[in-house]
Structures are given as C-alpha cells and as structure tokens.
C-alpha cells in the first residue's frame, strides 16, 4: 500500500510538472505576451515599446529558463534600468537588490505577483479558494445525500414506477448544463417578468453574507448537474446488488424489505458511488467556473476567468496547479478508498 501511494504521488508530481509547463508554454507565446504588455502598459504601445517592456520584465528569455525561474531552481532574472536601479521578479517594492533572495519560485514558497489583481498570487488564490470552498461545501451537502437517496430509491425495485420517474429526472438533470439550468432558475425565481422573486439573481452579496436567499440558486445549479450522474451510478450499483444471491437468500429467509435494503444491500451498493463522487470534483470545478461567472460570485472560478482573459501568467499557473492538484488528489483518494472499501481487490 505504501509503495502504491508513493508511486501515485510520483506520477502526480510528474503530471503536475508537465501540465504547468504546458500552461507556461501557452501563456508565454509571443502574441499572449504582447497582449499582457498592452494590458499592463497601454493599448497604443508600439512594437518597440512592447519589446522593451517585455525585455525589462524578463519575458524574452527562453521558455525553459523562465519555467526554471518560476519553479525556483534557477536564479531569477534581474534587469538594470538606465538610472542604475535593479528590478526583477524577486525584488518586491521597497526592497533593494541586495536584500532580496536570488531564487524565488514556488519551491521557495513564492507564487508571484498577479498583474490583474495587483496582489500577491498566494493571497488572491487563498481568498478566492476560501469563497469557492464555502460554495463547494454547500454543494456537496446538497448533492451527495440527495443523489444517493434518489439512486437508492430508484435502484431498490428495478423497473418500478419510482425507478422510471426518478431515472427520467436523473437523465434530465445530466442533460442540463449549468449555464442552461442557471438561466432557467434565474428566469423563473428572480426576474420581475415572472414575478416570483424568491431568490436573488446574483450571489455577490453572498461573499460577505451568505443567506438562503442569495446563495441557494448557485448551490442548486451546480448540485443539480452532478446529482443526476451520481444518482444513475448509485442506481446501477444498487440494482446489481439487489439481484445478488445473498439478497435473495435474505428475502427467502423472510427478512423484511426495508431491512434488506438498509442492512444488507446499502453497504455493498455504496462502494461504486463513492469513487464516482470523488471523481466528480474535477467536473464540479467546471460547474464552479460557469456558475461563479453567471451569478457573479467572485471565487476561484471567477478568478480563473479573469486571469485567463487578461493572460495573468503567474495567477493562471497557480490556478492550474491548484486545480490539477485537486483532480489528482481526488483520484488518489478514490483509488485508495476503493481498495479500502472492497476487500476483494485488497486480497488480489
């Protein structure tokens, strides 16, 4: 088991390295750098001005060198201005070149400076992740139990009325992407045209003061899309368990139906949904980006859109590191959990 986890962690690191290099490469293509220079300076910059801006900030070095600097394994670039002052990535405002360290990359714990938010990347990512964490917490709290209940009720008696109705509902939710269900919810529950006005159409206030009124719709929108998938998986695994031999034995012994479901079937039926729930995290990340844009909730997904739209290289890299980390860690947890929950795999 230890070796397995070690190997997985190794692959994780390799994946993270490859992906960040890919992001680095794409964001450092010249047209992207030009856009960055123009958003930072002004949009009427001439080609020479763009060139000198990029030169001054060290963007014109070879990509592997810049990547090494970002990682913190190469000394970072410094540029001596005409008036003799030295500027560079590691030299924060108010410090001199001598006081600053030579290496400053993520290995040293420095994530860079966001050009969009004019703040250190680590603080941006920290606060935004906190906000998204709150959103995700409520999404999980709503999505997982309701999906499991839906799936179990549907899978309990395959082909019954409950099964058909709930399965249709589950298929409908998986067919409704967040930007469709969100728009429909906003139209029905918040607009003055329909007149229900039960909820708020934006979740901007929910960042400081989340209430049921301003926070429920974004949570529901994300939860609904993921719910159908988990419910269908739970249903599939439940129907499989309900046809197993030992359930038949229990029925023939005269155990009551609720007892069979609760005591005999559930435990085995919940193994598969566990891994599915874990693997849903990367999907939820997509939903988070859409919903945060739709409801103007300034969390992690919103920051991603801002960073990508303005080619904020450092922030974008940090965001991709975080999201890749989330994806890989959930994969690892789902693998370990699967082995742990299913003794048959542990032995073989």
């Amino acid at each position: 088991m230890g070796l397995f986890i070690l190997k997985r962690v190794g692959i994780m690191l390799l994946t993270a390295l490859c992906l960040t290099f890919l992001v680095f490469f794409l964001t450092n293509l010249y047209p992207n750098l030009e856009k960055l220079a123009k958003t930072q300076g002004n949009f009427r910059m001439s080609d020479e001005q763009v060139e000198s801006y990029l030169e001054k900030n060290g963007y014109l070095q070879a990509t592997p060198i810049k990547y090494g600097e970002w990682l913190g394994i190469l000394p970072s670039y410094r540029h001596t201005n005409e008036d003799g002052t030295v500027q560079g990535r590691c030299i924060l405002p108010g410090k001199t070149a001598e006081e600053s360290p030579k290496f400053c990359g993520i290995l040293q714990g420095y994530w860079g400076y966001s050009t969009v938010f004019k703040e250190e990347v680590s603080t941006v990512v920290g606060t935004r992740l906190g906000l998204t964490g709150r959103l995700m917490f409520w999404v999980m709290l709503l999505m997982v139990p309701s999906a499991l209940i839906l799936g179990i009720l549907a899978g309990m008696r395959e082909g019954s009325a409950t099964d058909r109705t709930l399965s249709t509902f589950a298929i409908t939710t998986t067919a409704t992407p967040e930007y469709v269900s969100g728009v429909i919810f906003i139209a029905i529950f918040t607009s003055s045209a329909v007149g229900l006005k039960w909820f708020k159409g934006t979740a901007t206030q929910a960042m400081e003061n989340p209430t049921f009124e301003n926070f429920f719709l974004p949570v529901l929108t994300i939860a609904l899309y993921g719910m159908g998938y988990i419910a269908r998986m739970t249903r599939a695994s439940m129907t499989e368990v309900m046809t197993a031999q030992y359930i038949r034995t229990a029925r023939l012994k005269g155990v009551s139906f609720p007892n069979i479901v609760m005591k005999h079937a559930l435990r085995n039926a919940l193994i598969a949904p566990f891994t599915v729930i874990m693997l849903q995290f990367p999907w939820l990340l997509n939903g988070v980006v859409i919903v945060e844009t739709l409801f103007n909730y300034k969390g992690f997904g919103w920051a991603l859109v801002q960073a990508a739209g303005n080619n904020d290289i450092q922030l974008l890299l940090a965001i991709s590191v975080v999201s890749v980390f989330v994806v890989l860690v959930t994969q690892l947890i789902s693998d370990i959990g699967y082995v742990y929950l299913n003794p048959r795999i542990r032995i073989s």
């Binding site: 992906l19 990340l285 997509n286 890989l328």
Partner: peptide, 9 residues
Amino acid sequence: LILAFPVIL
C-alpha cells in the same frame, strides 16, 4: 494528463 486539465482552463 489531458484529463487532469480543467476543461475550461
């Protein structure tokens, strides 16, 4: 590797 990338990013 590609699957670990968030699609929107």
